[in-house]
Design a protein around this nucleic acid. Structure first.
Lengths: 366, 366
DNA sequence: CTGAAAGCGCTTACAG
DNA sequence: CTGAAAGCGCTTACAG
């Protein structure tokens, strides 16, 4: 590790706040203060303290003086309830588990921000976990969340998670899937209108007189990708163009980035399409790399359009035309469904929602 | 919501797995099976079951037959230990809390992936939380993690979290800061060599004969940004160039993206530097927008260099020269420090590490 | 070799 | 108006 430039070993710091008098910190120090401690200090019982601190003093008719005293002491001592104990007792955690495929994906980042904010407004915290599209990890994570008594689940499902998701459902756990679902299960889900999005892309390219339109997708055998592919094939046929088998390129999801770019490069070189649809944003990114490497220019040499937007596409010169997923709407809708389930409301809203994607024309098509 | 395209209300699914016989699911169903249940089924005591399931059968000399039986029943019943109960009893959760500023940032995404994998190898799961650079939220999140008996903390500190971080330290909680730290506290931390990184950038530009080098930074009053600014000022002076006050632009972190781009645009228009250093990657992204809007070309009209890499910079044409943070090394080092603390090892490694950044020349400078 | 019992920190009927 | 007590599901000395 010749990387390390400068190191220093800090002093052992015990109870000292550098530059600050220790007394100030003492007041706010987080100790393991329990209800028992407070009860003793105040000279009352644990139950009374619990009632007051949970705002149930009126129901149980505890005197204002006592209640006030209890609150004061709790504050002074810096009481923080032990969530483990509460969870064990009540079976509730006020936590929602969000399971995603990869944490570095754009979809996740955009989703997470909205979901965290929305759920926070309702008193729920979010735990994130990522499966890396690995079935075993997915199973483990769901079990882990289950063991931690998570109240609700939001899952971007991956291959191989069908069984665990089915089990959560059987248990009646509040659960909503995002971005995909398993057709065999009737789990609540919200996702983009994949079929419609790719249909729009094909229509758009056909109207622009593109003829040889290629389609680059991945090997994730989930409904969202299947729908995109189906839309491509049906719409092409509808336009009177029969796409040859070799106009389609399936890039393994697990391949390294450079490997994917290389495969796309070879594909484009061989097939020489006049336009390409990339069925996922990361494929589009690798596609741009490939096109750069081939020294092709777009839209002059080739037209491109990508399903799902990304910062890169907007900033690129020329900017890339995309089919944009309404990610904030997806997130909000999913949260709304989950909240209804958490509240055990007779969900008035539909439990299976598709939201339209929107084609945004930029400069990567003629 | 005219966005909604098609909706359908699934059947109520209770104990039915569509297309699969119910019996198959029954076997694996996640019930709330407890030690007590297993003890009853086997006809032994809770403690014996606990010992066996925790692999302590040898220590306590439980007969192989009994142990085997217990394991069988546990498996058949789908026993999953209640982590709340374990946590309450042991005070351990096997969870590490990772607190970041924003979850959609590149730094977070790259860090999270490495951290999750490394900690997973050691039996720890990760909970992510984001503060949105809001001091109040930061405080709440640390408290929340504390209440959930998290075993260790990895924190990208933001302004206003000093007190809580000091408290964690006083409590002797395993804790390591990433990307920044508070000079007054001696908390373990690992970050990039900010001073060296910007120094290299200035040297590089000076060597390329740039004279009027501007510096765009933000108002986050944390050490990492202060160091970057200090490096700019000192190195410019060292090169015999006295940067005027108006060569520096401080962009409020809280501003919306377009607002930031606009401020940078006006700044560049007014100051007309021949090169700009952007002190954070998102500033560079807004800077590129601004430069596009001004119809300037780089490197012809202006040279640019950005602290911290981003997908956008590599894919942009021309690609942007950057000072790259060694994010995986940061993450690995931080995890190593934290693990030592979790194991209560007399940390042999240094507790304060700076890792060198690396200048990557691309095409945005002449 | 195995079990009864205490206790982690809470909540919440129940009794007074 | 307030307190004693049971119990959530575990772990772990302790006793036999």
């Amino acid at each position: 590790m010749d990387y390390i430039t400068s190191v220093s070993k800090p002093l052992l710091v015990v109870g000292i706040a550098h530059g600050e008098p220790i007394a100030i910190f003492r007041t706010f120090i987080m100790k393991n203060v329990s209800l028992k401690d407070i009860a003793q200090k105040v000279g009352t019982s644990i139950s009374t303290v619990s009632f007051v601190l949970n705002g149930k003093e009126k129901q149980v008719r505890i005197s204002d003086i006592l209640a006030k005293k209890i609150r004061e002491v709790a504050k002074k001592e810096g009481y923080l309830p032990n969530k483990m104990a509460i969870g064990l007792k009540t079976g509730k955690s006020n936590i929602v588990g969000l399971v995603v495929d990869t944490i570095s994906g754009r979809l996740f980042a955009a989703l997470a921000e909205v979901i965290e904010k929305e759920l926070d407004n309702h008193g729920y915290k979010v735990i994130y976990c990522s499966t890396g599209n690995n079935a075993k990890k997915g199973k483990e994570l769901i079990e882990l969340l289950y063991q931690h008594q998570v109240d609700g689940y939001m899952i971007i499902p991956a291959e191989g998670m069908e069984k665990e998701i089915g089990q959560l459902e059987e248990q009646g756990k509040p659960l909503v899937l995002i971005d995909s679902y398993f057709p065999k299960l009737k789990t609540a889900h919200v996702l983009v209108d994949n079929y419609g999005g790719i249909s729009d892309a094909v229509d758009f390219l056909v109207k622009k007189q593109y003829k040889k339109i290629a389609f680059v997708y991945n090997d994730v055998a989930m409904i969202q990708m299947k729908e995109r592919k189906r839309a491509y094939q049906e719409k092409m046929k509808g336009a009177g163009i029969k796409p040859l088998a070799d106009w389609l390129l399936k890039v393994p999801f697990a391949d390294a980035g450079e490997e994917q770019a290389l495969k796309i490069e070879l594909f484009l070189k061989k097939v020489q399409p006049d336009a390409v649809i990339f069925a996922a944003n990361y494929l589009g990114i690798h596609g741009i790399e490939a096109i750069h490497n081939l020294k092709l220019k777009f839209p002059a040499d080739i037209g491109i359009i990508c399903f799902d937007d990304h910062e890169v596409f907007n900033l690129h010169q020329p900017a890339i035309t995309v089919v944009k997923q309404p990610v904030p709407e997806l997130a909000k809708t999913a949260v709304a469904i989950l909240l209804a389930k958490l509240r055990k409301e007779p969900s008035s809203a539909p439990d299976a929602v598709e939201i339209k994607a929107k084609l945004i024309e930029r400069q990567s098509t003629r």
